[in-house]
């Protein structure tokens, strides 16, 4: 019988992680993540704190945009644009699920 794994981290607003953890999770360097912050595409929970902390819900879109960047050999600014569109897609998908549930 194999071991059963229970230690899930929920990638939502309730979980937080620091810059190093985010860098590891998104396969992007700290310098690249800082550049995304400068572009306004990534926001730490409290920008005034010396140690930057992020909500875990930013991991999934960052991973998706980072993978597309690697797959197509794109520059970092494309990640900024993709993050905006990924956020809009997620919001619209959630609204669609909600409308379908309520009005089907």
């Amino acid at each position: 019988m194999s071991e059963l794994h229970l230690e899930w981290q929920w990638l939502d607003a309730g979980e937080a992680l620091d810059l190093n953890e985010l860098s590891r999770a998104c396969e992007m360097s700290a310098a690249e993540l800082n550049e995304l912050i400068e572009y306004g595409a990534l926001s730490p929970l409290d920008p005034n704190q010396p140690e930057l902390v992020f909500a875990a819900q930013c991991i999934a879109p960052l991973r998706t945009a980072g993978k597309l960047r690697r797959d197509y050999d794109l520059d970092l600014f494309t990640v900024v644009l993709m993050l905006d569109y990924l956020h809009r897609i997620e919001t619209l998908e959630e609204q669609l699920r909600s409308v379908r549930a309520r009005d089907s």
């Binding site: 194999s2 071991e3 059963l4 794994h5 229970l6 230690e7 899930w8 981290q9 929920w10 990638l11 939502d12 999770a25 875990a56 819900q57 991991i59 999934a60 997620e90 998908e93 959630e94 699920r97």
Partner: peptide, 22 residues
């Protein structure tokens, strides 16, 4: 390889979960 994982109660559509180090 096969990994047995337990999905906690309370997940919803669109939810993302991470299992570290597996």
């Amino acid at each position: 390889r096969t990994l047995e994982v337990s999905i906690p109660p309370g997940v919803m559509s669109g939810q993302k979960l991470r299992l570290r180090g597996k």
